[in-house]
């Protein structure tokens, strides 16, 4: 049977790159280790990647930006990537969120 259609976890094309809504599954939210992993992995891509939480957008390649965003367990974020490898980047980061950055 098919899962009901979503809004979270689908990568959507926008006129300025791609967007993706994800949820933070880690019990303690995007704490030190997941934030390190996220910024580390984001830096592997050439495109710009931003994270939006409660209306505020930050650089996904900066661990300090991610930490000061204070995204707790269950919070919903929007990732926005713009550049040649944007789609690939979002696919990669989506898997990280799903696997709780393990």
């Amino acid at each position: 049977m098919q899962a009901p259609t979503t809004g979270v976890d689908d990568i959507l094309a926008a006129n300025d790159g791609y967007r993706l809504r994800v949820r933070v599954l880690n019990e303690q939210g995007l704490h030190a280790r997941p934030a390190a992993r996220l910024s580390q992995e984001a830096q592997k891509f050439g495109c710009s990647i931003h994270l939006r939480h409660d209306g505020e957008a930050v650089d996904a390649k900066s661990i300090l930006d991610i930490l000061t965003m204070a995204a707790g367990h269950g919070s919903e974020l929007e990732l926005h990537a713009d550049g040649p490898d944007a789609l690939e980047a979002l696919r990669h980061l989506r898997a990280l969120f799903h696997n709780r950055f393990r």
Partner: peptide, 16 residues
């Protein structure tokens, strides 16, 4: 070792 990763990322962060 995992905490070292976050220290490394902070060290490399242009915000610092």
């Amino acid at each position: 070792a995992l905490i070292l990763d976050s220290h490394m990322m902070i060290l490399k962060d242009p915000k610092l």
